[in-house]
C-alpha cells in the first residue's frame, strides 16, 4: 500500500492545474462573456473535483510512510493534513454550485468567482505546505527523512537570551 505514496506528488498536479485553469476560464468567460470559456470552466472544475479524490487518498497513504519527529516540520505536516479535506470539501461545494449555474444556463457571478478564488487560495496554501514538507524538511525523501529531527535542531541555532542586567560589580569570590 505504501508503494502508492509517490503517486501523491503526481496527482497534486492535476488538482492544482485543473482548479487554477477552471478559475481562469470562468474569470475570462465572465469578463469576455464568452460561452465557450464558461463550458470549459464547468468541465475543468468537474474534472478537478474528480481528480482530487485520488489526490487526497494517496496523500493519506503517503503519510503512513513518513517518519517525522515532533517539531516544526511536524506542525507543517499536521496543517497540511487538516487542510486537505477542507480544500476538497470546498472544491466539491464549488463544483455543485458551478453545476447549478451550468444546468440553469446562467453566467457565473462575482460571488461565485470570489468563492472559487478563495478555494484556489486554500489550494495554494496547501500546495505551499506540501512543497515545504518535501523540499525544506525532506519528508518522504529517501535517505534524507531519517535526519528530520537533527535538521530541525540545526535549523534553529541556539540563541542565548539577552540579559539587560549589569554584571556583578565585585569580582568573583574564591578564585583559584
Amino acid at each position: 500500500m505504501r508503494r502508492a505514496a509517490p503517486l501523491h506528488p503526481i496527482l497534486v498536479h492535476f488538482t492544482i492545474a485543473l482548479t487554477a485553469t477552471a478559475l481562469a476560464f470562468d474569470l475570462l468567460g465572465r469578463v469576455l462573456h464568452a460561452p465557450g470559456l464558461a463550458v470549459a470552466g464547468w468541465w475543468t472544475l468537474a474534472f478537478s473535483a474528480a481528480a482530487t479524490v485520488p489526490t487526497v487518498a494517496t496523500g493519506v497513504v503517503s503519510r503512513l510512510g513518513v517518519d517525522i519527529g515532533e517539531g516544526e516540520a511536524r506542525a507543517y505536516l499536521r496543517l497540511h493534513m487538516a487542510l486537505g479535506p477542507v480544500f476538497f470539501g470546498m472544491l466539491v461545494a464549488m463544483t455543485v454550485w458551478r453545476a447549478v449555474l451550468w444546468t440553469a444556463g446562467r453566467e457565473v457571478g462575482w460571488w461565485y468567482l470570489a468563492a472559487l478564488g478563495l478555494t484556489a487560495a486554500t489550494m495554494a496554501v496547501q500546495g505551499y505546505l506540501g512543497g515545504e514538507l518535501v523540499y525544506r524538511w525532506g519528508a518522504a525523501v529517501e535517505g534524507r527523512h531519517r535526519d528530520l529531527r537533527q535538521r530541525h535542531a540545526s535549523d534553529t541555532p541556539p540563541r542565548p537570551r539577552r540579559d539587560t542586567r549589569p554584571e556583578p560589580a565585585h569580582p568573583a569570590p574564591g578564585g583559584a
Partner: peptide, 25 residues
C-alpha cells in the same frame, strides 16, 4: 580549593522533550 564553575560564558544546551537540544543560559 574552590573555584567558580566556568571561566568563560558559553551557550549551553539541554535535552528537549522531543529528542532535540534546546539552548540554555
Amino acid at each position: 580549593m574552590t573555584r567558580v564553575a566556568d571561566a568563560r560564558e558559553r551557550t549551553l544546551t539541554a535535552p528537549g522533550i522531543d529528542g532535540e537540544r534546546v539552548p540554555m543560559r
